[in-house]
Design a binder for these strands. Sequence first.
DNA 1: GTAACATAC
Length: 784
Amino acid sequence: MAKMDGASDNPYLAHMAPHMRGASSNSNGTGKTNGGKSHPLEGIIPRKVRGEQARKLLDGDVNPFTNKPYSTQFKKILEARKKLPVYAQMDEFFQLFNNNQCVVMVGETGSGKTTQIPQFVAYSDLPHTKGKLIACTQPRRVAAMSVAKRVADEMDVQLGKEVGYSIRFEDMTEPGTTFLKYMTDGTPHTFRSPNLALMLAQRYSTIILDEAHERTLSTDILMGLLKEIAKKRKDLKIIVMSATLDALKFQRYFGTVLSDDGKLAPLLKVPGRTFPVETFYTQEPEPDYVEASIRTVLMIHQAEDPGDILLFLTGEEEIEDACRKIKLEADDLDPSTVGPLLVIPLYSSLPPAQQQRIFQPAPSPRTTGGPQGRKIVVSTNIAETSLTIDGIVYVVDPGFSKQKVYNPRIRVESLLVSPISKASAQQRAGRAGRTRPGKCFRLYTEKDFISQLEEQTHPEILRSNLANTVLQLVKLGVTDLVHFDYMDAPAPESIMRALEMLNYLTCLDDEGNLTPLGGMAAEFPLDPQLSKMLIVSPEFKCSNEILTIAAMLSVPNVYTRPPNMRKEADAAKALLAVPDGDHLSLLNVYNNYMQSMSLFQGRKQRIVTLAYSDEGDKNWLWNNFLNGRALAQAQNVRTQLQRTMERFDLELISSTDQRTFYVNIRKALTCGFFMQVAHKEGEKNNYLTVKDNQVVALHPSCGLDTQPEWVLFNEFVLTTRSYIRTVTEIRPEWLLEFAPTYYDVKTFPDGETKRSLLRILQKRQGRAMASVENGREKKRRRQQ
DNA sequence: GTAACATAC
């Protein structure tokens, strides 16, 4: 609190009228504090003139945040900022912001809302907040980081001081100094505490939710929580920012914060700054959208003016395949009339260096004065929101994307190629008009666009397994999950399934209350099954190993399988495999990776001239067909999980007994994954999942050398058929021992699974009888 | 006998 100790330390007060400084010293405990309700300055600078104050501060000569004169750079950037559409509406913004607790704001691409609105709030709040923060949430890490950097520059302060960001693994803020914080919308994890409402109101003056139209699971939950808190804490301001015209839904939702009479939250609408895009539709529906895409792209290349093309497809394989075909077809074109073509794939699993290729310029003409070259980017949805490619003039939109769907009946999440929404189609088209007027070719009919496409993509909360979300909410004290104020309520069955699972895992008791174990599980950034196995792992003397396995299951696939080297890759994988289970193989891979790292570190010190990456020994990784980025990530996640374990005093321990080493790990796995178990039925690769009775097969990537009768699995994948992936053999006795409620045989339908369980029970009883007999026998002998 | 749309803690 040193900052507040004297008027001269307060950067704002130093430039303020003397009577205001007087008020400040009052606030330091020497005088009255305005009835003890709000900050004393609240009464001195009324909300309604804070806009004027902000403008004065911006146009002044001294930076009120650092007390230093503004740099020339600041003035230069300020001139550019003043040209942003949002800047012209500053007064309107303050008008709404000062008079309302919640404001909805719609600003399309190029409006400047993400950088400017939080600054408007900062300049207006500065004298009032007394250590309180302004938070601005983003759905993506890169956005949180880059916007924070930009805003720090604009405000003439150092990133990580007055303006900072907070994302997983990286907190670039300075407590006590930072007052504007950009964060990922999963990071409000830091908001989460049993007395969330209190904490939020104490630490934050304003919360700004950006990109709310994307309706990510965490944005939706955060909106529900904020709404609840805002009803109780009138001093907390909320701004919801969206890029679509779907503002009415947000206005209605937040309108009820103030009253229940159907009032709408006020709306600030800021135009975007984009160029017009002309849209074309096909006359007839296209039977094969990939083929049609390729045809369209080549047509554009031959017939349209220079300008790069962006084609949206659904996944890695489809994209690589299309790229190959486009290149082949382009080779057949007449080089004297058609320019060279640069075809670049784009999807998230590409290494960053390869992703950077999208920024390469289009190729130059083959001969001076010859036909111009063109760049074409073939991308997943990643180019719809996350990555912006300048210079795109043509967009080809077949109208599909892969979307997550959740079936609560069989508790399975899967990816399905589905038609996109109108909003998504609009967003895609907009990508053609960022630098100049563009064209968008939709590979479906206008009639289908109007009548078949949904207005908005279904929010993620309706398409997800909610086990983790429900656990988080219960931890926050939300008791009635069905009637929680969701913007779109998930199916009651999804919530029931989540509650049921948490109860079986003993994260919740039979009344739905959080258990001590559940309280701990909620603190891990993991699904509850994984948290549970981590928490119980010390009992099986294998917490070090389970930590590794949990981390490995939380990162992308570490195995690589280049199309032309499949055999070699499979052989390499087999060398590091453990026959009892894929989970154990993952542990083995990680341990070998760590060993190679330490050898490598030693070597690196001697050979300093070679360029090495942080991911480790490129040679070792390549020879073993492993993904260094994924492994490095696993190491990072493992450290984070270990810290959480230590916070709860969960012992970090490994067994030294070779005979029970793997058995204990498998037992701990069973404690978390007993609901993801399959029983072999018949001779072939034919399994039936327990209770849900889904017919599945071991995935071909499975490293088991046999087909055991009982297995647990990490994932259910639905492709050409239903597979279970990442599989480990278990003993049915463990199921009966560690999950007796779930494996209550009475609840099982007749079938092989039940008969097998019954056999175990009989054997067990027999053994119990025998051991009783045995005990009596021993006793007799001792007595003799 | 085979796949990872994106994002996040």
